[in-house]
């Protein structure tokens, strides 16, 4: 039980530092880009072409409501392998990730 509290405390520490600004700083954006490819990539593929989780390319996500994607990332999908990122990422982080996914790679072609 105390471990769970430990995790919550950790997430608060992380998110309160970031929740203040609506748009993540340039440095934070770089961290999120790396998180997306490496850590989301462990399930969605390093190129976001899919793996255990579905592909997250702009073509696949097109037409899916932004808020619904935000909720998916924040709360996960219970009963599936998609974990909730709310304990780790701030709302601003998640919104940035969703826009990044919908838009595609910063410099398309080489990276997803």
């Amino acid at each position: 039980m105390w471990c769970r509290i430990g995790i919550v405390a950790f997430s608060l520490a992380v998110s309160s530092a970031l929740a203040r600004s609506a748009v993540p700083s340039a440095q934070r954006q770089a961290e999120l880009e790396s998180l997306l490819l490496q850590d989301c990539g462990s399930c969605h593929g390093l190129m976001l072409k899919g793996g255990l989780g579905p592909a997250l390319r702009p073509q696949v996500l097109a037409g899916k409501p932004r808020q619904w994607l935000i909720d998916t990332i924040r709360n996960g999908r219970p009963g599936t392998a998609m974990p909730p990122w709310g304990p780790i990422l701030s709302d601003a982080d998640i919104a940035w990730l969703v826009d990044r996914l919908l838009r595609g790679a910063p410099d398309t072609g080489v990276r997803p």
Binding site: D39, S42, G76, A81, P83, P84
Partner: peptide, 9 residues
């Protein structure tokens, strides 16, 4: 026990 999120299989 309360399950925690699994961020990597």
């Amino acid at each position: 026990e309360k399950k925690r999120p699994v961020y990597k299989m």
